[in-house]
């Protein structure tokens, strides 16, 4: 299948290895991947901060770029940005041509793990990763898109990888975009509460699908001097050795 990658601005600039890993995994699953390097940000941070005009401007631009691709699917290694694109129709217009164009783009847009499992029907991506890992359900993937089982199914098929479920897997990490800096104290308290169970589980790595969450979880773990590594799910799915 021919897919177009919307890599998200955070992955692009902060977690590029998640982007290259996404491409790798998609190709292994039999896709051809194209990437329009004119893409920037979908506008989600502005939208969630209340700056709706700025957000609409960026979202409309993103929709205009993505609709130019002849790919059958648009794949995003982020639940948050996928949710923004899925909501594009109602964010951009109540009706009219723009709404229709956004509808077409939204219908083609998929979060990476959901795309692999639900669209391609692939669970074993031929990965090998010999570590104990725990999964963090990124809120927008889980609650906006209903993605719960997909990443777990993929991780369970990774050779050598042990998936350890923790009670706090569905708890928010406290990132929340600008929330993480506007209310830094609360945000840190939230990530600490979440990490308690993760650290108790004795895992090597915490895996998730949103770069924002990974920044938050990783930044806090590093500050706490923890040895737990944070990884984007694509990095695990692309792994071929004992890393």
């Amino acid at each position: 299948m021919h897919v177009s990658l919307f890599v998200s601005c955070l992955v692009d600039q902060l977690w590029p290895t998640a982007g290259t890993a996404t491409v790798e995994v998609l190709r292994r699953a039999g896709c051809t991947v194209d990437f329009d390097s004119r893409q920037t940000c979908c506008g989600q941070p502005a939208w969630n901060s209340g700056y709706r005009r700025d957000a609409r401007k960026l979202l409309e631009r993103t929709v205009s770029l993505l609709e130019q691709s002849d790919a059958e699917a648009i794949v995003v290694p982020s639940g948050s940005c996928t949710a923004m694109l899925r909501h594009a129709p109602e964010v951009l217009a109540d009706e009219g041509p723009l709404r229709e164009r956004a509808d077409v783009v939204a219908a083609r847009t998929h979060e990476l793990t959901s795309f692999l499992v639900n669209v391609l029907g692939v669970e074993d991506v031929g990965a090998r990763f010999e570590r104990r890992v725990s999964w963090h359900d990124a809120c927008h993937g889980l609650r906006e898109l209903g993605i719960r089982e997909e990443p777990r199914r993929l991780l369970r098929r990774v050779e050598g990888c042990e998936l350890v479920e923790v009670t706090s897997s569905e708890e928010c990490c406290g990132f929340g975009g600008t929330f993480s800096t506007k209310h830094a104290g609360i945000s840190v308290a939230m990530v600490d509460s979440k990490l308690e169970a993760v650290e108790a589980a004795g895992v090597d790595a915490l895996v998730s699908s949103d770069a924002g969450c990974l920044m938050q979880l990783g930044g806090r773990l590093e500050r706490r001097g923890s040895a737990i590594e944070v990884l984007h799910v694509a990095e695990v799915l692309a792994a071929r050795g004992s890393a």
Binding site: Q13, L14, W15, P16, S180, T181, K182, A184, G185, S187, V188, V191, M215, Q216, G218, G219, R220, E222, R223
Partner: peptide, 12 residues
């Protein structure tokens, strides 16, 4: 504000 409790991941 971020760094009050977390390390900030640098731009790649």
């Amino acid at each position: 504000a971020w760094r009050t409790g977390r390390e900030l991941r640098p731009l790649a």
